[in-house]
Amino acid sequence: HSHMSHTQVIELERKFSHQKYLSAPERAHLAKNLKLTETQVKIWFQNRRYKTKRKQLSSEL
């Protein structure tokens, strides 16, 4: 499990705020920019979407 830097997370968050789903080319581009693997980016987005979904569910209770 590799640790992401604060800067990388900020960039991922910024991208996520604009779009929740990335196409393969977008993911490849973002990964390259942030010096991450595409898998890391993919998993981060999956986890981030899951967290957002959970938060929405709990706020509706």
Rank of each mutant, 00 (worst) to 15 (best):
H1K: 15
H1M: 09
H1C: 15
H1N: 06
H1F: 12
H1D: 09
S2I: 11
S2Q: 07
S2T: 11
S2E: 08
S2N: 10
S2H: 11
S2F: 15
H3D: 07
H3L: 10
H3R: 06
H3E: 09
H3Y: 11
M4L: 07
M4F: 13
M4Q: 03
M4V: 05
M4G: 00
M4I: 08
M4N: 01
M4Y: 06
S5W: 05
S5G: 04
S5L: 05
S5E: 04
S5Y: 04
S5N: 06
S5M: 05
S5D: 06
H6T: 08
H6V: 11
H6F: 07
H6S: 09
H6P: 13
H6D: 10
H6G: 03
H6W: 10
T7A: 15
T7R: 10
T7C: 14
T7W: 15
T7S: 11
Q8S: 01
Q8M: 05
Q8L: 03
Q8Y: 04
Q8W: 08
Q8F: 05
Q8C: 15
Q8T: 05
V9T: 09
V9Q: 09
V9P: 01
V9C: 12
V9E: 08
V9R: 11
V9F: 10
V9G: 01
I10T: 11
I10H: 09
I10Q: 13
I10W: 09
I10P: 00
I10M: 14
E11Y: 06
E11V: 08
E11I: 13
E11T: 06
E11K: 07
E11L: 06
L12G: 02
L12F: 01
L12D: 01
L12H: 01
L12T: 03
L12E: 01
L12M: 03
E13V: 07
E13A: 05
E13R: 05
E13N: 04
E13M: 08
E13T: 05
E13C: 15
E13D: 05
R14N: 06
R14L: 08
R14T: 05
R14S: 12
R14M: 08
R14Y: 05
K15I: 14
K15F: 11
K15D: 00
K15S: 07
K15L: 14
K15C: 15
K15V: 14
K15T: 14
K15P: 02
K15H: 11
F16G: 01
F16Q: 00
F16D: 00
F16I: 00
F16W: 05
F16N: 04
F16K: 03
S17G: 06
S17Y: 07
S17I: 06
S17N: 08
S17C: 15
H18A: 11
H18N: 05
H18M: 09
H18T: 11
Q19W: 07
Q19C: 15
Q19D: 05
Q19R: 09
Q19F: 09
Q19S: 13
K20N: 13
K20D: 01
K20T: 05
K20H: 09
K20Q: 12
K20Y: 05
Y21G: 02
Y21S: 06
Y21H: 06
Y21L: 03
Y21D: 03
Y21I: 04
Y21P: 02
L22G: 00
L22Q: 00
L22V: 05
L22A: 01
L22H: 01
L22T: 01
L22S: 01
L22Y: 01
L22N: 01
L22E: 01
S23M: 04
S23T: 10
S23G: 04
S23R: 03
S23L: 04
S23Q: 01
S23F: 03
A24V: 09
A24H: 08
A24P: 10
A24M: 05
A24W: 12
A24Q: 10
A24T: 05
A24I: 11
P25F: 11
P25R: 12
P25Y: 07
P25W: 10
P25A: 13
P25G: 15
E26L: 03
E26K: 04
E26T: 02
E26V: 03
E26Y: 03
E26F: 02
E26G: 02
R27V: 12
R27L: 11
R27H: 02
R27N: 04
A28H: 12
A28V: 08
A28I: 07
A28D: 06
A28K: 10
A28C: 13
A28P: 00
A28S: 09
A28T: 07
H29C: 11
H29T: 13
H29F: 05
H29L: 14
H29S: 13
H29A: 10
H29V: 12
H29K: 12
L30G: 00
L30C: 07
L30I: 11
L30R: 00
L30T: 01
L30W: 00
A31F: 03
A31E: 04
A31P: 01
A31T: 02
A31G: 02
A31W: 02
A31Q: 02
K32M: 12
K32L: 14
K32E: 10
K32G: 07
K32A: 11
N33A: 14
N33T: 14
N33F: 12
L34H: 01
L34T: 03
L34N: 00
L34Q: 00
L34M: 03
L34D: 01
L34F: 02
L34Y: 00
K35G: 15
K35V: 04
K35M: 11
K35Q: 12
K35T: 04
K35H: 09
K35S: 12
L36P: 00
L36I: 04
L36W: 03
L36D: 00
L36N: 01
L36G: 00
T37Q: 04
T37Y: 02
T37G: 03
T37W: 04
T37I: 03
T37K: 02
T37E: 05
E38Y: 05
E38K: 03
E38A: 11
E38S: 04
T39K: 06
T39C: 12
T39L: 12
T39I: 10
Q40Y: 06
Q40I: 05
Q40F: 06
Q40P: 01
Q40G: 03
Q40L: 10
V41C: 05
V41H: 00
V41G: 00
V41F: 13
V41R: 00
V41W: 01
V41D: 00
V41E: 02
V41Q: 00
K42R: 13
K42N: 10
K42E: 08
K42T: 06
I43T: 06
I43D: 06
I43H: 06
I43S: 06
I43C: 13
I43N: 07
W44P: 00
W44T: 00
W44G: 00
W44N: 00
W44A: 01
F45I: 01
F45T: 02
F45W: 07
F45Q: 02
F45P: 00
F45L: 00
F45N: 00
F45E: 02
F45R: 00
Q46T: 05
Q46P: 01
Q46S: 08
Q46M: 08
Q46A: 13
N47K: 14
N47T: 07
N47Y: 14
N47M: 13
R48S: 04
R48Q: 11
R48P: 01
R48G: 04
R48T: 06
R49T: 02
R49L: 04
R49Q: 02
R49K: 03
R49F: 03
Y50V: 08
Y50M: 13
Y50E: 07
Y50I: 11
Y50W: 12
Y50N: 08
Y50S: 12
Y50F: 08
Y50G: 10
K51Y: 09
K51I: 07
K51M: 09
K51P: 05
K51Q: 14
K51N: 08
K51D: 11
T52Y: 15
T52F: 14
T52I: 07
T52V: 09
K53I: 10
K53R: 11
K53F: 11
K53N: 12
K53Y: 10
R54C: 15
R54Q: 13
R54E: 13
R54H: 14
R54K: 14
R54S: 14
R54F: 07
R54Y: 13
K55S: 13
K55F: 08
K55E: 15
K55R: 04
K55W: 06
K55L: 15
K55Q: 14
K55I: 08
K55A: 14
Q56E: 13
Q56G: 10
Q56H: 11
Q56A: 07
L57H: 10
L57G: 14
L57E: 14
L57I: 12
L57Q: 13
L57K: 15
L57F: 10
L57R: 03
S58P: 12
S58M: 09
S58L: 15
S58A: 10
S58G: 13
S59I: 08
S59P: 10
S59T: 10
S59L: 11
S59E: 14
E60V: 07
E60N: 06
E60P: 07
L61V: 11
L61K: 11
L61P: 10
L61E: 09
